[in-house]
């Protein structure tokens, strides 16, 4: 693409002059292609933003591509209060935070054991964790639904907290175990010679040294748990306990075709994960690639 714009490239297409030309053709072509591409890629997001700020009358009269006639902050108020977003958002945090902490703590314990000790079945346990995360959710749905009923957790926060905590163990153990294996064993051995017991080695050495990967994992897991739709649908029925994903689906029904209010709600719903992504993007990306490119 860039080479075709080089003069004389038609005559000797393969040959690329070593000396760099003064005018940065490649950069110009790069921006000329990529900037419009990204703008088009993000059209669904820009138009959602504009629509959330306008009145339905304005949208109907002038179409989605016009600027808002007036800024209607009331859309956000409506979504937040009448639409129930305030409740749903709070629920999402009530569910996500404990599940996140629980799964990180428990998986760091398990990962430490799998990384540090050799014993029969350690690979089996490791592969069970990994295999479990890859399963289609439907294979768990009915027994999990039933289990929450039997344990009287159905339709409470706890159903989602406990299930996410358990299910996410698979991925977290996978990532943390592989990270902890890169910590030189001498560090642990030295601590042992100094008389530390195993739990102290975990708490004072393994855990602090794994903090970068735990941070990466935490941003990723927060997003996953926060964005879960399927389990919220299956395990929680009552509006009182719904997280923002199924809450938004509720809104989709209640405000059907009132795009402005619907999108105001949508934008409120994405604030936490978008902020997280903006400020912790590095960790977020690290987490994703850690899990995938082992």
């Amino acid at each position: 693409m860039a080479t075709t714009s080089l003069p004389g490239s038609g005559a000797a297409p393969i040959f690329r002059p070593k000396a760099r030309r003064k005018f940065p053709w490649r950069a110009v072509v790069f921006y000329a292609v990529m900037i419009p591409f990204v703008l088009i890629w993000l059209v669904p997001i820009f138009t959602t933003l504009i629509t959330s700020l306008r009145s339905m009358d304005g949208l109907r009269q002038n179409g989605p591509w016009s600027l808002p006639e007036s800024i209607e902050w009331g859309n956000f108020r409506e979504a937040w209060n009448q639409g129930g977003l305030s409740r749903y958002m709070a629920n999402s945090f009530i569910i996500t935070i404990p599940a996140l902490i629980g799964t990180l703590f428990l998986s760091s314990l398990g990962a430490f054991a799998l990384a540090r000790y050799k014993f029969r079945g350690s690979l089996l346990i490791y592969f069970t964790f990994v295999g479990g995360t890859l399963l289609p959710y439907q294979i768990l749905m009915l027994p999990v639904w039933r289990l929450t009923n039997e344990l009287n957790l159905y339709n409470t926060y706890w159903a989602l907290i406990v299930f996410h905590m358990a299910f996410q163990l698979g991925f977290c153990t996978f990532v943390l175990r592989n990270f902890m294996r890169t910590i030189p064993g001498e560090i642990f051995d030295a601590a042992r010679i100094d008389g530390a017991n195993e739990f102290r080695i975990y708490r004072q050495h393994a855990l602090p040294l794994s903090l970068p990967s735990i941070a990466a994992l935490a941003t990723l897991e927060f997003t996953w748990i926060f964005n879960d739709y399927l389990w919220a649908l299956v395990l929680v029925q009552d509006d009182k306990y719904k997280p923002v994903t199924t809450g938004l689906a509720q809104l989709l029904g209640e405000y059907s075709r009132q795009w402005n209010i619907l999108f105001a709600g949508t934008l409120i719903a994405v604030v936490p994960t978008v902020l997280l992504f903006m400020f912790l993007q590095r960790y977020f990306i690290q987490g994703l690639t850690m899990g995938s490119s082992k």
Binding site: L106, S107, L109, G110, F112, A113, L114, I125, T128, F129, G132, L135, I139, L140, L142, P143, V144, L147, V162, F163, M165, A166, F167, L169, G170, T173, E198, Y202
Partner: peptide, 16 residues
């Protein structure tokens, strides 16, 4: 170290 995570995983993922 493994008791709690493995138990939880067996109960909620592998068992189901």
């Amino acid at each position: 170290f493994l008791a709690a995570p493995v138990a939880l995983y067996l109960l909620w993922v592998i068992g189901p």
